[in-house]
């Protein structure tokens, strides 16, 4: 249909003004469409540009270079070398390892909570749910997606933290668990949506065939639909992980923001995103600290970009496969 479009072009009817308007509109519209690509490139350039001095400027490298970002650093005076994030002190220390561990810890906790809930909920709405239940769960998830993350952060900080500490007696009121539970609320909608799409793109013939063989509805769901949609479910997990890594306000408010190098889920943590949010406001533009924060931003950007690229490519592949099969 589309290829024939050129033959639709009118020869004379619209007159000169029509032809002119058409040309201007085409240029403007095409230009706007390119903006999405251009802005993505600009983001990369402008964040990369501010991160670059860590690799190139001798002056900046005296304080912050790729070695002391990743390796332990001694506080001087014979003290043992440690992984410490202490950018504002007499001898600034920029080890990003505690931040990396904190980010991974909270992201993993959030994923472990969100993924099972979201996948099962999506399977239920796609396979078993009566209409009324589907019409309840779907808008609820959309509402959940619509809650601003600062509100979730507020709730975790003011209410959830007290409940959890009261129930489990944790040493730190704000810790990776509290933030992880909050963060899972931000992850559930995206995992649910991608999974739901994957389940409903499984051809009906698969289900019919399974039921005709005498399988019950849960056997069909767990042994036919779930395996067929598995790549979509995996993509959903990956995309959810990507969402969790970059989320800022929830972890900024509920994680305690202490850069401790520990794998204990009940210790306070400081994540990449929260570090940027908390420190960029007070930093001197052009200082080593400023460039390190942009380096962290560039790191976040590259990771989430790779995750998204992979996730969407994977989803597209699955859809093509299932469409071919139906």
């Amino acid at each position: 249909m589309r290829d024939r479009k050129s033959s639709y072009r009118p020869m004379h009817a619209a007159g000169r003004s029509g032809a002119w308007g058409d040309r201007v509109a085409r240029v403007l519209i095409t230009g706007s469409a390119m903006l999405a690509i251009v802005s993505l490139i600009l983001i990369f350039i402008f964040i990369g540009k501010e991160a670059l001095p860590i690799f190139t400027s001798a002056e900046i490298q005296e304080e912050a270079n790729i070695r002391n970002l990743f390796l332990p650093q001694s506080a001087g005076g014979g003290a043992a070398a440690e992984y410490t994030w202490q950018p504002v002190s007499e001898l600034p220390k920029y080890s990003i390892l505690p931040l990396l561990v904190g980010t991974l810890k909270v992201t993993i906790i959030a994923s472990l909570i969100a993924i099972p809930l979201a996948v099962l909920a999506a399977l239920y709405t796609a396979e078993f749910a009566p209409t009324w239940a589907r019409e309840t769960v779907k808008p609820a998830i959309e509402l959940l997606a619509g809650i601003p993350s600062v509100v979730v952060g507020f709730f975790c900080l003011m209410v959830l933290a007290d409940w959890l500490q009261g129930a489990f007696g944790w040493t730190f009121r704000l810790n990776a668990m509290t933030a992880g539970i909050g963060l899972s609320l931000a992850v559930i909608p995206i995992v649910y949506t991608v999974c739901e799409d994957a389940f409903s793109s499984v051809p009906q013939a698969y289900r019919d065939g399974s039921v005709a063989m005498g399988a019950s509805s849960w056997q069909t769901a767990s042994r036919v639909v779930l395996p067929a949609a598995m790549p979509g479910v995996l993509a959903a997990c990956v995309l959810g992980f990507g969402r969790a890594i970059g989320e800022t306000m929830i972890v900024l408010m509920a994680s305690g923001n202490a850069a401790i190098l520990s794998w204990l889920p009940t210790d306070s943590i400081r994540t990449f995103s929260a570090t940027i949010a908390a420190e960029l406001g007070e930093v001197v533009v052009g200082s080593p600290h400023y460039h390190v924060l942009f380096f962290i931003g560039a790191f976040l950007f590259v990771i989430t970009f790779a995750i998204n690229l992979f996730g969407h490519w994977w989803v597209g592949r699955l859809q093509k496969k299932l469409q071919g099969a139906s």
């Binding site: 983001i43 402008f46 970059g246 800022t248 942009f294 931003g297 998204n308 690229l309 969407h312």
Partner: peptide, 23 residues
Amino acid sequence: VRLAIQNLAGVPAIVFGLFGLGF
């Protein structure tokens, strides 16, 4: 373009903040 839009949707909000400041 579609890929760019999808990826733009996945860029963390804080990175947009950095971009706004830098650009």
